[in-house]
């Protein structure tokens, strides 16, 4: 994966296939994953507060429409990288925090550009959809290359993945 915002999925193919994955890339995997996480988190800063979500579907739709107003909002809060790292369970040295902050800010700015699009006359949708069949039958298939997945696990022993003790830690 090169620089720039990673996409979350390729909507042209619904097959659960591997894209851009090989064992060589797993060393970068953690970094990529963090940036992805951070971007997701940052995007949520762009979004409204968690209060926008309600268990009442009607209310949610109304609030969605209110989201459009964010296009009007001019400046965004700079990302709190330290807090983002905490929620991603990653410890960052102070110089790393400094290093990441502008990168994440850049991503947020890209999305800032999208906010300029005028959506006043577009009906709100629950989400973007494509028209094709996007479901699967309930027929099991064993993934052939399981060994490659397990080989990429940092610590694997007695058929379990070993991780630092995590009891009573949310």
């Amino acid at each position: 994966m090169g620089p720039g915002p990673p996409t979350d999925g390729d909507s042209s193919s619904r097959e659960p296939a591997i894209r851009a994955y090989s064992t060589n890339e797993t060393s970068n995997y953690h970094q990529i994953k963090f940036i992805t996480m951070a971007i997701r988190a940052a995007l949520l800063l762009v979004r409204a507060t968690p209060l926008q979500f309600s268990f009442n579907p009607k209310q949610a739709l109304v609030l969605k429409q209110n989201n459009r107003n964010y296009a009007v909002k001019s400046s965004l809060e700079p990302p709190d990288v330290q807090r983002l790292a905490e929620t991603a369970r990653i410890s960052l040295a102070p110089h790393e925090v400094e290093e990441f902050a502008p990168k994440i800010q850049q991503v947020i700015d890209w999305f800032g550009q999208l906010q300029a699009v005028d959506l006043q006359n577009v009906a709100p949708a629950i989400r973007a959809d494509n028209e094709e069949e996007t479901l699967r039958d309930d027929s099991p298939e064993i993934f052939e290359n399981r060994d490659a997945i397990l080989a990429a696990v940092p610590c694997y022993e007695d058929s379990y993945i070993k991780v630092p003790k995590v009891l009573n830690k949310e």
Binding site: P16, Y21, D138
Partner: peptide, 22 residues
Amino acid sequence: PNTSICPVCMGLPGALPVLSTK
């Protein structure tokens, strides 16, 4: 343990989920 796994449920980059009708 860890025999019923694939890129989707292991969260590998680029893997896409597809919901079962069931």
